[in-house]
């Protein structure tokens, strides 16, 4: 057991280095093997993986370009809408100002119309008052004529004869008709 534990492997005797035809043949074989390996690795691993990564990079770049274009478009739209909003604000002010002016104009017209109407009403009222006054004056005049006739009739009946009485009454009536009642 102890011998087995402390025993060692035998060092293998081998060819390490020599410059002879075997070395040259070995180099040629290794070169061919290396070429086969290079072609194999290049065809199956290196180039396909590089190609895959290149295509992926191009795809991602295209997507990034697309995203940049979309962002630029969105920014231009935002700018456009901002401008529109600003112009809407300006337009709102203009519309309000126009409405205010229109309202003021309309208000002036309404007031003028109202004044005219009031004037018309006042004139009509004045005309009605004047007509009423004329009517009252006429009625008063007729009443006074009637009253004066009665009074004159009674006075005359007591003091003068029928002929003088008639003459006086006609004279009084003529005077009353000529009189001004204002």
């Amino acid at each position: 057991m102890q011998e087995a534990l402390f025993s060692t492997q035998a060092a293998s005797a081998g060819r390490v280095f020599a410059l002879d035809s075997q070395t040259l043949i070995g180099i040629a074989i290794q070169l061919v093997n290396a070429a086969i390996l290079a072609v194999g690795l290049g065809y199956m691993l290196y180039n396909p993986v590089k190609d895959f990564m290149r295509k992926r990079t191009e795809r991602i770049q295209a997507q990034m370009d697309e995203a940049d274009a979309a962002l630029a478009k969105a920014n231009s739209l935002i700018a456009e809408y901002d401008a529109k909003l600003k112009s809407i604000g300006d337009e709102r002010v203009k519309v309000l100002e126009a409405a205010r002016l229109e309202a003021a104009e309309e208000s002036k017209e309404i007031i003028a119309e109202a004044k005219k109407e009031a004037e018309r009403i006042r004139e009509r009222s004045l005309e009605a008052v004047a007509a009423y006054r004329r009517r009252l004056e006429e009625e008063t005049r007729l009443y006074i004529i009637e009253a004066a006739s009665l009074m004159a009739q009674q006075i005359v009946a007591q003091t003068i004869d029928d002929e003088a009485q008639t003459k006086l009454i006609e004279q009084a009536l003529a005077d009353l008709e000529d009189a001004q009642w204002h």
């Binding site: 194999g40 690795l41 691993l45 290196y46 993986v49 795809r59």
Partner: peptide, 29 residues
């Protein structure tokens, strides 16, 4: 050569976002 053949076969299954084996191969290349 075996590794290259495996990579060639699995290349069809390679994803946009690499993970695991694909990640190691891509990182090396």
């Amino acid at each position: 050569l075996l590794l290259a053949a495996v990579v060639r076969l699995r290349l069809r299954c390679f994803k946009e976002i690499p993970t695991g084996f694909q990640n190691a191969i891509e990182a090396a290349v």
